[in-house]
Design a protein around this nucleic acid. Structure first.
Lengths: 186, 186
DNA sequence: GTCTATATAGCGATAGAC
DNA sequence: GTCTATCGCTATATAGAC
């Protein structure tokens, strides 16, 4: 199973053969078929396994602290998460197979982006109620924040290009948080 | 060539056979090989052809009008562009094959997102010089704006999920532009 | 349960006639 | 230039021995 996850994530569905998986796992092909039935089934299970470890951890951020404290840390963690090689690979595999395996999109979207947006929107709403931000639509604001945080860093890695230098990323994240706080200042 | 573009966009590189392309084009496989040499070459040409029609048209937006006028229209056009089925498919194919065909990422990124950011950054810089916006880093601001505009609408289509309803999209775009203008008001 | 061996089909690419 | 026919290889999936 670990071999399947690794290979599917790296080479996609069509680009990975059951022979490859069996060889990487050190077993025979028949063993793979005995356990998982067919290749499609194995693919679904592999992606599903990966997706469940691809959300942001709500307990890792301080949901009571004011946004000036929480948002920079949240931004850093979020970008670190979505630009990790594993997250990028699973993302690319799910989108690359979106037409032929629609269930993968649903799976990834639900266990990844949607959960993250929920966490952030919940935090923003709480802060709005506490009077520390002026936000009418916390979900929209969350999408705005996360969308602009990802932007170039995420896209460059998605296309397998040179990453944005760390120093530029740090500055960009600070700019984003500052810009977000200006726009939603009470 | 049209058949190749269509099939590669729908099924990716590994998922498309030269037999499929030849059949769709109504010619024999040998004819395809006579014209394009090998499958990889044909793939590169197909993606390249698509990318050149995937930028935002700088002449379609009024670069002299103030941001309150220009940005809503620019936002609308941008989202329409990046959420078109063709753009989504090419995007997904390039990312899905990013590990095995790195040149595709460079190709798409250069002729797509990078050009758009340049256009928007240029506009923002001009407006900043005219004193109608207060922006220190026009490129960062452009990435912020485009990143948050895409967000959920683009991601849902990327994963082949139900699109965000048009009315919600309109409201979201308005919110984004308003939020951007608040943050960068002089 | 896991292995080796194999069936069957499709792949990219080529040869040679017209 | 385009066709049919085919090569050599690899793919998914299965059969049967241990």
């Amino acid at each position: 199973m670990a071999a399947a996850v690794e290979l599917f994530a790296r080479n996609g569905f069509e680009g990975t053969s059951v022979d490859d998986i069996a060889a990487a796992a050190g077993v025979s092909k028949q063993t793979v078929y005995s356990h998982f039935g067919c290749k499609e089934n194995l693919f679904g299970l592999a992606v599903s396994a990966k997706c469940k470890t691809s959300g942001i951890d709500p307990e890792a951020i301080d949901l009571d602290a004011p946004p000036e404290v929480t948002l920079p840390e949240l931004a850093r963690r979020f970008l670190h998460l979505v630009t990790s090689p594993e997250a990028i690979r699973v993302h690319n595999v799910c989108t690359g197979s979106a037409e032929t395996h629609p269930e993968l999109g649903r799976l990834f979207f639900k266990h990844g982006p949607l959960e993250t947006v929920d966490v952030v929107a919940g935090y923003l709403e709480a802060q709005a109620r506490a009077g520390r931000l002026r936000i009418d639509e916390p979900r929209s604001a969350a999408w705005q924040l996360l969308g602009m945080l990802k932007a170039e860093s995420h896209m460059r890695l998605q296309f397998n290009l040179e990453p944005v230098p760390a120093r530029e990323v740090d500055r960009y994240l600070r700019d984003c948080v500052a810009m977000f706080l200006r726009a939603y200042a009470p």
